[in-house]
Design a protein around this nucleic acid. Structure first.
Lengths: 338, 338
DNA sequence: CTGAAAGCGCTTACAG
DNA sequence: CTGAAAGCGCTTACAG
């Protein structure tokens, strides 16, 4: 049974190719009688529509691309899983655009919308993904696209975000409430808006509490585990070490735990730790980590909802979606003791 | 500057569409003079070839699909990242087929090869992904495909595997060498070949050491963190508890650590733990985890190499690739003490 | 409700 | 080295 096309099916049941096409994509406009006939023939032939024919005609691929810095990061992985789910439900397939933070790869994947390889873009990066030289009209006629997690410096684009500043403030306020006054911070990549915003939240919380900002207490990280270990080690070496550390990601917290373990400093008795993300393992750390929960599933769903609206040229009432976060208090934070 | 096609470019530089096509996809067969002329026009128009036209003609999509149970699992994420890298280098894009272990989704993604949406399949599942009813010729004319991690019960298919049995034996032998005689195990999903093989390795190692197999020491897990916690809790409740636990994944080991922490049992002084995978965090656990290293990057590369050979109809000398694993000895295992 | 026809944008055998 | 032409497999306005 060699591969059959719409013509063979049509011939087999004595209708035109047009009718076969209609039966498959818009069954309601076909009479029940022909519909049955066609469907039977389709089954008999084992016919599967060839996507290329339809795509060439409709100029739609049925694919979307998600441009994301690193799929290995569990926050990203969680979001992608949610996107894949939501996309599958509405008949879209997702192309993986893992960029490894390479701006060239960001552009490469975004350009797929030009060649038709994808119909829309989910952008988890703050880098503008197009070459304006190539097509200067792009700024005003953006393709279907939604931006999440790391905001582009551009209005008029759909965004799904959390309020990083408020979230960080909430985390630091929790430590302040416990009596901590010297609070360290280990940041993410400081070129990322999320990390800048979290730092702003940290600073504001201290300021509002009337605590002077101390540079030495903020150490540069990059959201990865190793940077958390290095960062915590630096903070521990301070002549006047902090009593608590706000880690800008759970990964950083894992690294910090490791440094503290090696230095035989007990969490939370001698050092309180707060993380950010609430990744799956954070509740299984020893002690379980107090952290800011990010709604990964909802982020994915909202991204897909906004993208779908654009793909279907539906009006969008609210282009900026801000999702709530939550401080999950576990056992890595405690009242200051001295 | 509205979207221009190959015709506009051709018109602009006074050649035929055929020549434009040749210049772009096979520049060597075009004279230097025309080539320059064409390239200039291409740039001027901001022309990007439309993939649909080419695809319809060549019947190639330039996409592959990776069918994988859960992208959120860091072993899977690591492999996918490697695949994405290797694929990008040879001009393929990767479609994400996250199945959540749903056999229907496995089939859904595999069927994409029929509609032309993808040219090949990377299958990380032991489930045969096609409906033989739909197309019985499939068993003998398989599409380009390679199977990895969880072996299909089918010969004559390209496979990239590790030797799970030998790896598990190595892990258990390490514990035996340290003097442990009562060694517990927390398994993965027992419907997965990998977990069955690891269990076989565990059993063989004990047998060769002349130790009687004890059912109560083997508890069912599912590769997830929570199952590790539950499993370890069960093992601790035994009247004659083990002195060491072989966890079938690092995730399970994380769960076990959590249970041991809560029970105030020290690793490795009172309980040795071995994991499996060597995921990024395993070196940062407290204590750092002794575990079996899986070569994720190489797995991805070999998968892509074998798939590419099939996509290009190249002969494949060796359809079965077995990649070496390594026992990484860190601080979660110690000599038995009593 | 259905059919005949045009056409989406490429590539490639064929001829020169 | 280059062009004219056919055709990949669909969908959809148009006509009936």
């Amino acid at each position: 049974m060699s591969k059959s096309g719409i013509k063979q099916v049509a011939a087999l049941c004595g209708v035109s190719p047009a009718t076969v096409s209609r039966t498959l994509s818009n069954p309601d406009i076909v009479s029940e009688k022909t519909r049955d006939k066609v469907l039977k023939a389709v089954e008999l032939c084992g016919y599967t529509p060839n996507r290329f024919g339809a795509s060439l005609r409709t100029q739609k691929s049925g694919n979307i691309v998600v441009i994301i810095p690193d799929i290995t990061n569990s926050v990203n992985a969680g979001i992608i899983r949610s996107i894949e789910n939501a996309a599958a439900k509405v008949g879209y397939s997702v192309l993986l655009g893992d960029t490894q933070r390479d701006p060239e790869k960001v552009k490469h994947y975004a350009a797929m919308v030009r060649s038709g390889q994808v119909d829309g873009i989910l952008l988890f990066s703050h880098q503008f993904p197009f070459d304006l030289k190539e097509d200067s009209s792009l700024l005003h006629h953006l393709p279907p696209m939604v931006n999440s997690c790391e905001p582009l410096a551009l209005d008029n684009i759909c965004k799904v975000m959390i309020n990083n500043t408020a979230a960080a403030k909430m985390a630091v306020n929790h430590l302040l409430d416990l009596g901590h006054r010297r609070i360290g911070a280990i940041t993410g990549n400081m070129d990322a808006p999320s990390s800048q915003e979290r730092l702003a939240g940290y600073t504001q919380a201290l300021q509002e509490a009337g605590i002077e900002f101390s540079v030495e207490l903020v150490v540069d990280g990059n959201y990865q585990i190793e940077s958390g270990k290095l960062g915590a080690t630096k903070l521990l070496a301070l002549h006047n070490r902090p009593t608590a550390i706000f880690c800008f990601s759970d990964n950083i917290a894992v690294g910090a735990y490791s440094a503290l373990y090696e230095a035989k400093i007990e969490v939370p008795q001698q050092m309180s730790i707060v993380g950010f993300d609430d990744t799956e393992f954070s509740g299984y750390l020893n002690p379980p980590l107090t952290t800011v929960h990010q709604p990964l599933i909802e982020i994915g769903q909202q991204c897909m909802r906004l993208l779908l609206a654009q793909l279907n040229a539906k009006p969008i009432s609210n282009k900026y979606v801000e999702l709530p976060v939550q401080l999950i208090i576990r056992n890595s934070t405690a009242k200051i003791s001295h």
